[in-house]
Write a protein that binds this DNA or RNA. Structure first.
Lengths: 173, 173
DNA sequence: GATCTCTGGTTGCAACTTACAACCGGTAGC
DNA sequence: GCTACCGGTTGTAAGTTGCAACCAGAGATC
């Protein structure tokens, strides 16, 4: 048994300073960590090949492997073998990662305001930003149910709503 | 005259994808960019030597120089020569950088919840998180006054409040 | 007018990280 | 036994970071 969900702090190496912003940047401030977490969070993909082949930014397989194991070591993802196929690994968000939802929402909102983001890929970020804390909480509850408790993805939840909006815009509707 | 404040989008190179989260990560997702912005935002330091010698994480001078010029190019900082000393440069936050305040608040809140942050360096992050959007707006208004309009730092503002709380805790009070 | 200090940096070099492409051994279905 | 799928590893080149030393121009001091 590993540490209970939400109990303590993450097992990360000591940083250059104890400033919370600096520590977060040391952990997540690279080119891929947040992008991988974004994909697990919003795309619903939880297996290596899924994440590799569906990545919008075409992440390389060695980078994906190294990020996944770093995130597992840091306690942001957990690793589960699937009964169906002994080599298949299910990567699930931990409570710490689920609590990054508000950060992702702000990151998306700022990027779609200030950077040359494409309309199709911005729609989810904008909806999530407009939804505010109330929507973030609903999304987090949904992620807890699917990633921590192993329940199936609801068809009428926040993620389904965001995905539908994306598909509507992406298909030119 | 450069582009009016808050008018358009930032002049950044095209990214690997138009996803707003990815674009933000491409711009700010490295070891130092957000740390430098944090210092300009919260420490009140706006000159090269100040930022270099007061840095809690001891940034190297070449890295600081390269980040400052990158942030200026990206439109997150602006560069002003000081009349008093012709070589002295005043780096000021732009509107785009000021709108990172909520992101910084979340970054700090998450880091002080999940990472081994020191109590003294966490107190500002926790106050800012507790203050919520209302406090962030007041802080942003204050930053606009000092960085965009060149007004002096108020002694009774949000920054003064945060700094006082930090000094109280840091001195063991 | 020489010296000292402060200004924002630059240079050279070693270590580490990222990126791309090819390749791999174990598992499962047919 | 063949084929497809599974999570990766390996080799190598290019780019980034980190450290320490160094620098030229500007202003103040004597």
């Amino acid at each position: 048994m590993t540490q209970p969900v939400g109990a303590g702090r993450l097992p990360v190496p000591a940083g250059k300073s104890g400033c919370p912003i600096n520590l977060t940047v040391e952990l997540l401030g690279d080119r891929w960590s947040l992008v991988v977490l974004r994909d697990v969070m919003f795309s619903g993909h939880r297996h290596f090949r899924e994440l590799l082949t569906n990545s919008v930014e075409s992440i390389a397989s060695n980078i994906l492997a190294s990020r996944l194991s770093k995130l597992v070591d840091a306690g942001l993802l957990s690793r589960h073998e699937e009964p169906s196929h002994r080599q298949k690994i299910d990567y699930r968000l931990t409570e710490a990662a689920i609590e990054l939802v508000p950060l992702m929402a702000h990151l998306g909102a700022w990027g779609s305001r200030w950077l040359p983001a494409s309309p199709a890929l911005s729609i989810r970020a904008e909806l999530l930003a407009e939804g505010g804390p109330e929507m973030w909480e609903r999304f987090m509850a949904e992620l807890r149910a699917t990633h921590l408790d192993g329940r199936p993805q609801p068809t009428n939840g926040v993620l389904a709503e965001l995905t539908q909006a994306y598909e509507r815009v992406a298909s030119g509707g």
